[in-house]
Amino acid sequence: MSAVLVTGATQPLGRAVVEGLRDRGRRVLAVGIDPDGDFPGDVVYESVDLSRARSLKRLMFGPAVDLGVDTIVHLAFHRTPGHPRAHKLHVDATRLLLRMSERHPTIRRFVHRSTVEVYAARLDRPDVLREDNPLELSPKAPAWIRERVEADLTACTRMGMGDLDIAVLRCSEIFAPKMGSQLHDYLSSQLCFRPMGFDPILNLLTVEDAANAFVLAAESDATGVFNIPGKDTMPLIWLTRKWGRDSVGVPGPMLGPLYSARRWLRRTRFRYDLNAWRFHFNGVLDGTRAREELGYVPEHGIEWPRLDSGGAGD
């Protein structure tokens, strides 16, 4: 029986994907950086630093061959923007994994995790983003976003170049703790600042729905790029209120320094420069292609906190 290799398996999304694949009777080779994966007995866990080519080669041509891995679900993701290891993990590891998969004796399919952030931020951008929307290639874009675009393009440029089937899943923001969610970090403060006079529409994805999308993609033969939206679509102000926070409008140019100071003083991870565009303009993924070709439909809404007073924004 063939198996699926899941990278980033010790992160919440990875665990959910491993669980979903097990439920479908697939054998799983879970890969993470932690020494111990703490998975059920039928899951083979390997602790591997994906940014090291030698470790990766040992994994790919060792346990992956032994278990007959035919599909890779590449979810590994560094949660901290600007971390020196992030580029290696996002771009270099993706390139190496793809290169090794192409000449691997058993691997036939590669599913890559990408994100809504890869779409170009410019005024002629539509509010509803399809897969053919231009990507963010501006030299002014933050390095964190350029890395995500580079990783996405690394996977896309390999499509149709060999026998490997490649699917790239561009996910809405997965709104959960320990997922590198900038919005989750943004809402960690009781008082949230936003650009005055703007209230953009956001779409949020749950770990459950994201995991379902990756399991469906691993099981499918469909190739290409797929947008993965979540079930919850709402304005930024409603989101803050539903999460029990207060939001205050501040002139746009003040937000960068304000959040830089807050990050420095309170050690928060939220970076305004990564979110400036979407805090002004709408950007919701169109999931038609994923629905039609993968059978993906978002089903799980965000679990909102029960507030002791006041109501949600709507």
Partner: peptide, 22 residues
């Protein structure tokens, strides 16, 4: 600022081709 909200909340949209399609 604000004008965008007045228009979009009442039905306006940025006239990009992608929005027309959607």
């Amino acid at each position: 600022p604000w004008i965008n909200l007045l228009f979009t909340r009442a039905g306006g949209f940025s006239g990009t081709r992608g929005n027309f399609h959607a």
